[in-house]
Write a protein that binds this DNA or RNA. Structure first.
Lengths: 250, 250
DNA sequence: GCGATTTTGTGAATACCTTCACAAGGGCGT
DNA sequence: ACGCCCTTGTGAAGGTATTCACAAAATCGC
């Protein structure tokens, strides 16, 4: 009864992945990486309620995927399950944590303090998931120098120095679309290698930089497409056997 | 020099798509739909600056995809290009607009007025892209009754009536994770068929409802993974021919 | 101990997406 | 009119991701 699919989202360069030799985890598929974060959240939740072991079936349900997919995903990390029993919650949690590189408590810069930027600054999920906002940056002289959540708002002109001294690798970009590329370029020059872009623009970056985009308007438009399709279908099909209460205008 | 990839993100039920007979657009791949929104934005931008026709190559660059992919994507809509010339910007804009179902100016409900909810309420991209916030809902009695952007904040207990009278099909969910499923259930009962979920939870919904998820923590973790991989590689590889100035802590 | 039962890990099959590469079509200069 | 050049549209090939289905491993009851 419960339909579920999953997330996959990517930008950036990952050319010659396989055969990295040194590190153990070789070439985990992109789609799997995206789901590991979901599994991790489910596992942490279970750990908190005292669940010690979990089967692929129940973890899959919690994560909204099917169990074969989950097992295949986990198999890329190694063999951490016990046949006939399931997975040890804390062991698996640690493994995913490590695989995602969350042991490092990464420094994140928040660029752009509009409404969205402020909302993100207050987002508790940052700290609780291994990320630490180390710098907040804006271009508006009226707010540069004020403090947000204990951090001073710094000027975008000082980006280079900020990124270097705080050793920031990840930036969250919530600036207006018109200046996003320019700010992005500065970030890249300063040494940032991962960008989470909320501005509705396609960013051009060199191959060694990863960009992930969160695009509200696009998401809505995708929903709109499916909605449109659904209503079109409802019009021509006989009755639609489902039971859901529909709101049909007069 | 410019690496780019694209977005794909999905949840929800799309079982028996092909052979819908009535509607013309038969079975556009999910990945294509997700990109149409990007193309649309690029096209609108070009239209505003007075560009009349565009080749697949330049539109592809603007959208950050390769041109073969773009042409294949557009071919699902029909044959709107002219060989040797390119695409008429306004014609193509209209076609994508129509395909995405944006001609309808859909009513959207915003559920949850925390920091993020407020930020989204103020987001101009809504209106300019064919969406209209028709209702704002929260559970906190202290803010129910106040006005945000001209709209009264209504109580979540009245969801059912609100959705029906405003004929809302799309809801944006920015409530705390703990209550997301409950609110989601109410929305579904009321007749909402598309949900954009910002709460860090997997929502269980019946098959006829689409859910798309925006998950900040997951995005950061995915970036973290790649970043981790990058530094691991930098450690064992000889020199890395690139020129970017790296900030390496002492 | 041993068979019944459970659940993992994974080859093989399938479905989906991307990229390649080129023929077909259309304008433009002469 | 004609040939040249440009760009689309699309089969075919190559990847990537998902699902199936089953053997291998581990526990439990007896």
């Amino acid at each position: 009864m419960i339909a579920q699919r999953d997330q996959l989202n990517a930008v950036g360069g990952h050319a010659d992945e396989r055969s990295v030799a040194g590190t153990d985890q070789r070439s985990i598929p992109e789609a799997t990486v995206a789901r590991l974060a979901i599994y991790l959240r489910a596992l942490v939740g279970m750990g908190k309620v005292g669940v010690a072991t979990v089967s692929s079936g129940s973890l899959a349900t919690a994560a909204g995927v099917n169990s074969a997919k989950l097992r295949k995903d986990l198999s890329y990390l190694g063999s951490y399950g016990i046949r006939g029993v399931g997975y040890d919650v804390s062991l698996l949690t640690d493994q995913i944590h490590k695989t995602l590189g969350l042991h490092q408590n990464r420094a994140v810069a928040l660029i752009g303090l509009g409404h969205l930027g402020r909302a993100l600054a207050g987002y508790a999920g940052f700290a609780s998931r291994g990320f630490r906002i180390s710098a907040i940056v804006d271009a508006d002289p009226a707010i540069v120098g004020t403090r947000v959540r204990g951090l001073p708002v710094q000027h975008v002109d000082d980006l280079d120095a900020i990124v270097r001294t705080e050793n920031i690798a990840i930036a969250v970009l919530t600036v207006p679309a018109g200046v996003a590329q320019e700010v992005c370029d500065r970030l890249v020059v300063a040494g940032v290698t991962s960008i989470l872009n909320f501005a509705p623009t396609v960013l051009a970056v060199p191959a060694h930089v990863d960009v992930r985009k969160v695009d509200l308007a696009a998401e809505l438009q995708i929903l709109s497409f499916h909605d449109n399709r659904k209503s079109a279908r409802a019009d021509c099909e006989p009755a639609r056997s489902g039971s859901s209460t529909m709101a049909v205008g007069p």
